[in-house]
């Protein structure tokens, strides 16, 4: 090989520096974006937070006419819909992951895995429109009357399933959310189950354990951290999901004990009202809702990532 000319080498070094700087800038931009999101939300939310103070998150009133805003109803709606979603999606996702890793014939493993991932690719607005036109009437006609009829004498449950079957409302939003986060939970749990060493499972079978006993006593304890991480990742999605909920929640700023009643969530309040918000305090209050959502989801997702990372570390070592 010819000796590299000094001029050529200097040029190469310059390109190297430029390229390195470009990649570093792009990488740091990721941090800047997150920082920018936090700063701009705090700045936008400041007027509302200063005006209402801490009572912003403890009052239920949301009245554009008198210019009074409290975030309690959206917070309540966000939490309750997410809890319903997780209650439905976690066992189902666990079942799917279990089926894919332990039961499924190898031939079907890929197609079913891809189908679950395709469900994750369907945009949230599609879940919304489907929820409004298909799921809500279905629940209204068949499920909600049954719930009302079955539980109306039982003290606590009766309160949860009280009132007319609207179709749209907290419960329906929770069900749509459950279908939405299901693929994320199932896929993460499947990946986590796959990290359990075959040796451990075989040892269980060797002792005469049934498939379920191996899963419950070997696979689950071994991948506990990952399972919780997957659940929290799904929870992060559910808390922040916007469009699917906006279609079916009914957008009512009040807290009612019945799950069948319409309500609102943080994200659907923003989606529904932001472009129509007149007045600085109204806009600022909606951005303050966004800030709350950011803080809640950031905490949940960061915790989830930390857990999944810990698991990765375990597997690597």
């Amino acid at each position: 090989m010819a000796i590299i000319e000094p001029r050529h080498a200097a040029k190469q070094l310059m390109y190297e520096r430029i390229f390195r700087a470009a990649t570093l800038t792009a990488a740091i931009l990721v941090l800047i974006i997150l920082g920018g999101v936090a700063v701009s939300l705090i700045r936008g939310a400041w007027p509302a937070l200063r005006h209402f103070g801490f009572s912003f998150i403890t009052t239920e009133v949301w009245n554009p006419v008198t210019d009074e805003y409290g975030a309690l109803a959206p917070i309540y709606g966000t939490v309750v819909t997410s809890v319903i979603a997780m209650a439905l999606a976690v066992p189902t996702g666990f079942g799917i992951a279990l089926f894919l890793t332990e039961l499924c014939p190898p031939m079907l493993k890929r197609p079913i895995g891809v189908a679950v991932e395709l469900l994750a690719a369907v945009p949230s607005i599609i879940f919304g429109i489907w929820g409004l036109f298909v799921l809500a009437p279905l629940l209204q006609r068949h499920v909600q009357p049954w719930l009302i009829h079955t539980f109306h004498h039982i003290p606590v449950l009766g309160q949860l399933f009280k009132g007319p079957p609207f179709g749209i409302g907290i419960l329906t939003a929770g069900v749509v959310l459950a279908i939405m986060v299901l693929p994320f939970i199932a896929a993460t749990m499947r990946d986590v189950f796959d990290t359990v060493p075959a040796m451990l499972k075989e040892s269980g079978y060797g002792l005469g354990a049934t498939t379920w006993e191996v899963i419950w006593n070997v696979v689950v304890p071994h991948s506990r951290v990952g399972i919780v991480g997957g659940i929290m990742l799904g929870l992060g999605r559910a808390l922040g999901e916007t469009m699917a909920v906006t279609f079916v929640i009914g957008n009512a700023h009040r807290i009612s004990t019945s799950l069948l009643a319409p309500g609102t969530t943080i994200s659907s309040s923003i989606a529904n009202e932001f472009t129509e918000a007149v007045g600085d305090l109204y806009t600022s209050s909606l951005i303050a809702l966004g800030l709350l959502l950011f803080l809640i989801t950031f905490t949940v997702i960061a915790a989830a990532q930390a857990m999944l990372r810990r698991l990765e570390g375990q597997v690597a070592s």
Partner: peptide, 21 residues
């Protein structure tokens, strides 16, 4: 870590951010 958080962050928050800036 931050990238993985952004990957699952609610997209409406990004909308608010761009609205602000």
């Amino acid at each position: 870590f931050i990238n993985d958080v952004l990957l699952s962050a609610p997209s409406i928050i990004i909308g608010l951010f761009i609205y602000e800036i």
